[in-house]
Design a protein around this nucleic acid. Sequence first.
DNA 1: TAGATTGTTACCGT
DNA 2: CACGGTAACAATCT
Length: 270
Amino acid sequence: MPELLEVELYRRLAVAALDRPIASVAVVDPHVLGAPVSATGLRRALVGRRFTAARRRGKLLLLDTGAAGGEGAGPTVGLRFGMTGGLLVDDRAALDRLRHSAGHYGERWVRLRVHFGDGGVLAFHDPRRFGRLLLDPDEGALGPDAATATVAELRAALGTRGPGAGPPLKARLLDQTRLAGVGNLLADEILWRAGLSPSRPSGSLSADELRRLHRQLRSTLDRLAERGGSHTGDLMEERRPGGRCPRDGAELARVTVGGRTTWWCPAHQR
DNA sequence: TAGATTGTTACCGT
DNA sequence: CACGGTAACAATCT
């Protein structure tokens, strides 16, 4: 579920966890910790501190820490939500439902808890266990955030190797090191709205097509944010055999691009 | 039951 | 070596 739009909702929820002293950390499932982080190491890094800022870059949620009393910066916690991760603060969720979780947040899928001195708790929830907690993640490894990327940044992300060159356009949109935040559902929706084929060579866009893609990137994120998330696109209900293009009624094609299932309209996406 | 799933990454071949 | 495609990961849902 979590693409950029969902992680932004998690970020806003996480603001409620700021400036509260961290009393203890319960690693319910050690699997959520990346190899270099141990449960004791994480406790040592966090207990006695507090979260001071909730930031986001692409699909990565970043929680900066400082000393509980005031001065003294601590490590930054990075939360990567994988396919099914979610966040709860004081038992409130950013999203009412999560797919792959029987429509609710179950106790059995809580992988990590951060307890605050006031009795509250921040919980990391992840049925499928692709999510990870990272300490001081390399933010520079991610491309510019898709929600704020400029046309020039988008052009750089796609590459400029010229006509016929480069990987499929969709594969580049999904490459988090070039542009951060777009996942499989958003990529299909954006390309559908922009009228561009997912398999166009990434370097083959004209200046006009590039501007169109940039405009649709922005407007799609705005529109789906209003509607409630990455799964609220016009294409979503048609992602099935026999699904039809909501714009022109043509039967959608299912292909694999960039290793992901891709639905697109051969009639108007060029 | 077989097949699919919204993310990331190690590995393999060109 | 750089680049790009594939499988693997884990658990659940249709």
